[in-house]
C-alpha cells in the first residue's frame, strides 16, 4: 500500500490541495452480499474550490460526500482533508473533527423543529466551551445576517419558507467558520428562486471566504454554479468538467 503525505503540494492547476482521496473504497454488508458503492477512487479538491458531484442514484456520490464530511469512514485508502487523514480517526474523533472543520447542508434542511432559527444556528457553537454567551450570540447574528435572515432569528422552522429554512441551515453550517462545507442536494427541495439564492450563497462562500465546498446534486443547473463538476458512475469518476469562470451562472 502506498503511503501518502498530507496534501501540501499543489495540483496541476496551481491550487493548494485541500481534499485528497487516494485509493478510497467503501463497502458494507447488505444481507449476505457485500456492496461496494465506492472503489479505489482518487480525487483532489483545491482549497476554496466549489465542486459539484453528479451521477445517477446509487453511483456513490452521497457515500463519497459522507466520507469527505467525516460522517462515515472509508473501508480502505486514505482521505486527507486539510492536514487530517480522516481514515485514521475513530468515531468519537470524527465527531469532534466534524464539529470544528465541517459544515453539513442537507436536502431537507434538518432543522430542529422545537428550536428557533437563532437557536438552531447556535447549536454547533454550544460545543465550544471557550465561547462566552455574548460571543456565541454575535457569531449567530453574523451568520444569520450573512444569509439574509437577521430578521427571522426568533422564528421556528415551521414559520419559515423552504428557502429560508435552507438558509438557516447554511448559517448553521458556517457559524463555526469551518474550512469545508458539504451539501447534499441543497436545492433539491426548493423552487428556482430559492435555489438560486442558496447557490449564490455557496458561490460567495467559495469565492469570498475561500471555503471548500463539495455539493452533491442531480440538477445540472445547480452543478453549473460550481467551478468543477465530477460525474460518478458505479463508484468511479467518469468525467470531469472544469468551469473556469468564477461568475455566477445564469439560471
Amino acid at each position: 500500500m502506498t503511503v501518502f503525505n498530507p496534501p501540501t503540494s499543489s495540483d496541476p492547476h496551481g491550487k493548494e490541495v485541500f481534499i485528497r482521496c487516494r485509493n478510497v473504497s467503501k463497502s458494507y454488508r447488505k444481507g449476505k452480499t457485500i456492496v461496494t458503492p465506492l472503489e479505489a477512487l482518487d480525487l483532489d479538491v483545491g482549497r476554496g474550490e466549489f465542486l459539484a458531484l453528479m451521477g445517477p442514484s446509487g453511483s456513490g456520490k452521497t457515500t463519497l460526500l459522507n466520507l469527505i464530511a467525516g460522517i462515515d469512514s472509508p473501508t480502505t485508502g486514505e482521505l486527507w482533508v486539510d492536514k487530517q487523514n480522516l481514515a485514521s480517526l475513530k468515531r468519537g474523533q470524527l465527531t469532534a473533527w466534524r464539529a470544528k472543520h465541517c459544515g453539513y447542508i442537507f436536502q431537507l434542511y434538518h432543522l430542529v423543529p422545537i428550536l428557533t432559527a437563532f437557536e438552531n444556528v447556535e447549536l454547533p457553537l454550544l460545543l465550544d466551551r471557550s465561547l462566552s454567551r455574548k460571543e456565541r450570540h454575535s457569531k449567530v447574528a453574523a451568520a444569520l445576517d450573512l444569509v439574509g435572515l437577521a430578521n427571522r432569528a426568533d422564528h421556528r422552522p415551521t414559520e419559515l419558507s423552504g428557502g429560508q429554512e435552507q438558509r438557516v441551515a447554511i448559517a448553521r453550517a458556517i457559524v463555526t467558520n469551518p474550512g469545508l462545507l458539504v451539501a447534499d442536494e441543497p436545492t433539491g427541495d426548493l423552487d428556482r428562486k430559492s435555489a438560486t439564492q442558496v447557490l449564490d450563497l455557496l458561490r460567495e462562500f467559495s469565492s469570498e471566504y475561500r471555503k471548500t465546498i463539495v455539493m452533491v446534486t442531480h440538477d445540472a443547473v445547480a452543478a453549473n454554479a460550481a467551478q468543477r463538476t465530477l460525474h460518478l458512475e458505479k463508484g468511479q469518476l467518469v468525467e470531469q468538467v472544469q468551469i473556469t469562470t468564477s461568475e455566477p451562472t445564469e439560471v
Partner: peptide, 14 residues
C-alpha cells in the same frame, strides 16, 4: 432518529 443523527453530524457525541 433523523434529528438525532443531525445533531451527531453537527458534532454532538452519542
Amino acid at each position: 432518529i433523523r434529528e438525532l443523527a443531525t445533531l451527531q453530524a453537527i458534532g454532538y457525541s452519542r
